[in-house]
Design a protein around this nucleic acid. Structure first.
Length: 657
RNA sequence: GCCACCGUAGCUCAGUGGUAGAGCACACCCUUGGUAAGGGUGAGGUCACGGGUUCAAGUCCCGUCGGUGGCUCCA
């Protein structure tokens, strides 16, 4: 007999070889029916795997987060089985659970097509209907490798060979005549898998994530506990698509992209107006924090990039031009020995030059040099994405030159500023990553030790939760990354802080210390918004194009009801413009319904309707975006109230209450 | 860069190898109206680009360019 403790604290006795399923059944028949797996002393285990001894036990069903994960994991296995049934000769590799679903990577000569999805899904449903028991088997490593090799499954054999330590056994899960290497646990049978799954997309993926390896075919799927959840998920995806910044940019006339300038943005007046508001805001915030704004060259001698180390690591991603003036009319031939200039891919080497000009004293530190620097990077073409990943972008960049003992306080100041800025834009879901030394790097190990320790200590002081990303740092130093999520759930690096002992050394930056000796400053590379393009892309998606008054490109449209009100509308617009608003007047020969609809579709925050009555009384009828209500107020009152609302958050804070 | 898919009017999209289409937007005319589409007329196209197959290609084949979704990369 063994003792089993249930979640409510009660203890029951069972036969020694009792399974979690038996325990569930002893509680209630319906629980046994719903049971997918069990948590034994906190560890997830198969429902049919007998207990080893006394344990506390919790039955996992599809309403648990763990249960959903099991469902998705099993969906991946059922997908693999279905694919191998339908496409003999296809090899399986790996198939993990991801957010909202799963994927499976297959090796097959022939490409899959999304037209195969229906057939695969049908076969998956048949496998569920067949209700094959899913059975766990323990194999000796060598035997397992031999078996997979016999079946022609070279990838599986390689996985076992690589990840399982010698002497350790592996587990295999069998369903029907199909089986796969797997740590488990799994559902008790394929019939327990809800049919609420759907294949979503097809993509290439390198074997083991290495671009030197062959490319596999990845099938993505989504899986849920029931049809309703699946449907809700699909609806969410549709809604998210409507927020896509590329779609909204077209609808709201914000910018366009064109192959004439691949990976660069043509900003239209409305889109650029948002840019200007964001830029003005961040410029005020930086000035208030003691940053000095500068402007540095777009083209710089390749020698500087060689010295900084960028030439060695990023040459193929830099746009390089010969420094050469052709003479005469004929064909232009660039001399082989022409000096090369690079269009800047980043601002730091130029900022070091500004630091180096003239003498710097310890009294000048920390020196915070900021620049809205326009950079170009020749990115892999497949990496380009809307305005989130472009070839020309502007950073709200700055470099803080400081002493080593100022690193922590400067980092804390930066984190506080960043948090305040993100708050002002309404971003609450910010992920912080601490990226440590990469394999290929500059600087000695003890410099890296110090840099990583300092950065971690600083981020710990801020109290922000963070995750460590081993090996993801910049080549010159570790970094903090502040990531935001777009409408589709993709995560993008926006803010960053990078600690750098290397560049000041390489480019020879120094200051005169208190002792009179020359010393090296430390450099903090930092950006809050990151790329203006990317940040605006995320902002567009965050607000779904309906910007708050302070950011809206057109804040107020004055729309007339009849042409008799035209002169009054012009006077209203003029008064609003004088008060600092961005205003348009709509005196077109259209009905007011039409005008209201059009400007609502354009997500204009305020529509000021004026007709004969308003002209008579000196009033405006205000209609706010998202509301059908109208409020008729005097022009003076409207200006007074809207002026406060239109203040950027930092200016609003400065306003006397 | 790699894999798959896509590219038709300003936008959203139809289009069976046989004369290039619709709605919206745009221009002009009528209509002067009270809070989400009033009516009429008209203009608008190298079907991404380059080859090929065919009596005939937007449609089939090959290539190039660009976009989308992933993978790799991201100072």
């Amino acid at each position: 007999m063994i003792q089993v403790t249930l979640p409510d604290g009660s203890v029951r006795d069972f036969e020694a070889d009792v399974t979690p399923y038996d325990v569930a059944k002893s509680i209630s028949g319906s629980l046994a029916k719903k049971a997918l797996a069990a948590r034994i002393d906190g560890e997830l285990r198969d429902l049919m795997r007998p207990l080893d001894g006394p344990a506390s036990i919790e039955i996992v069903t599809s309403v648990d987060a763990d249960g959903l994960e099991l469902i998705r994991h099993d969906a991946a296995h059922v997908l693999a089985q279905a694919v191998q049934d339908l496409f003999p000769g296809t090899q399986v590799t790996i198939g993990p659970v991801i957010d909202d679903g799963f994927y499976y990577d297959f090796a097959r000569e022939e490409p899959f097509s999304s037209e195969d999805f229906a057939a695969i899904e049908n076969r998956m449903r048949e496998i569920v209907d067949a209700d094959y028991p899913i059975e766990r088997e323990v194999w000796e490593k060598g035997a397992a490798i031999a078996e997979f090799e016999r079946l022609g499954e070279v990838y599986k054999a390689q996985i076992i060979d690589d990840i399982i330590p010698a002497g350790e056994d592996i587990t295999i899960y069998r369903q029907g005549d199909w089986f796969d290497l797997c740590r488990g646990p799994h559902l008790p049978s394929t019939g327990k898998l809800p049919k609420a799954f759907k294949l979503m997309k097809l993509a290439g993926a390198y074997w083991r994530g290495d671009s030197k390896n062959e490319m596999l075919q990845r099938l993505y799927g989504t899986a849920w506990a029931n049809e309703k959840d699946l449907k809700a998920h699909l609806t969410r995806l549709e809604e998210a698509e409507k927020r896509d910044h590329r779609k909204l940019a077209t609808q709201l006339d914000l910018f366009h992209l064109d192959s004439l300038a691949m990976g660069s943005v043509f900003w239209h007046p409305k889109g650029y107006q948002i840019w200007l508001q964001v830029e003005a805001y961040i410029r005020r915030r930086l000035a208030a924090e003691g940053y000095n704004e500068i402007k540095t060259p777009q083209l710089m001698d390749s020698a500087q990039w060689e010295k900084s180390g960028h030439w060695g690591k990023f040459r193929e991603n830099m746009f390089v031009v010969p420094d050469f003036v052709p003479d005469g009319e004929g064909e232009v031939t660039v001399p082989k020995d022409a000096k090369l200039m690079a269009i800047k891919p980043m601002n730091c080497p130029a900022h070091v030059e500004v630091f180096k000009s003239g003498q710097k004293s310890y009294r000048d530190l920390p020196l915070r040099l900021a620049e809205f620097g326009c950079c170009h990077r020749n990115e892999p073409h497949g990496a380009l994405h809307g305005i989130m990943r472009v070839r020309q972008f502007t950073q709200d960049d700055a470099h803080i030159f400081c002493r080593e003992d100022q690193i922590i306080s400067e980092t804390e100041r930066f984190c506080a500023l960043l948090q305040s800025v993100y708050d002002d834009f309404g971003f609450t879901d910010v992920q912080v990553k601490l990226s440590t030394r990469p394999d290929v790097r500059a600087g000695s190990d003890d410099v890296w030790d110090r840099a990583e320790q300092d950065l971690e200590e600083a981020i710990r002081h801020t109290g922000l939760p963070y995750e460590i990303m081993p090996g993801e740092g910049a080549f010159y130093g570790p970094k903090l990354e502040f990531q935001l999520t777009d409408a589709i759930g993709r995560v993008w690096q926006c803010g960053t802080l990078q600690l750098d002992f290397v560049l000041p050394e390489r480019l020879g930056a120094e200051y005169v210390a208190e002792s009179g000796a020359k010393e090296r400053p430390v450099m903090l590379h930092r950006a809050i918004l990151g790329s203006m393009e990317r940040f605006l892309g995320i902002l567009i998606e965050e607000f779904a194009g309906a910007f708050p008054l302070w950011l809206a490109p057109v804040q107020i449209v004055v729309a007339t009801i009849t042409s008799e009100a035209d002169p009054y509308a012009e006077r209203v617009a003029e008064a609003l413009r004088e008060a600092g608003f961005r205003v348009e007047v709509d005196t077109r020969n259209e009905k007011i319904n039409y005008k209201v609809r059009e400007h609502s579709v354009q997500k204009v925050p305020v529509i000021a309707v004026v007709g004969a009555r308003e002209a008579e009384s000196g009033a405006v009828a205000l209609r706010r975006f998202g509301s059908k209500a109208q409020s008729v107020v005097s022009l003076e009152d409207a200006i007074r109230d809207l002026s406060v609302e239109a203040l950027a958050p930092d200016l609003l804070r400065a306003e006397p209450a």
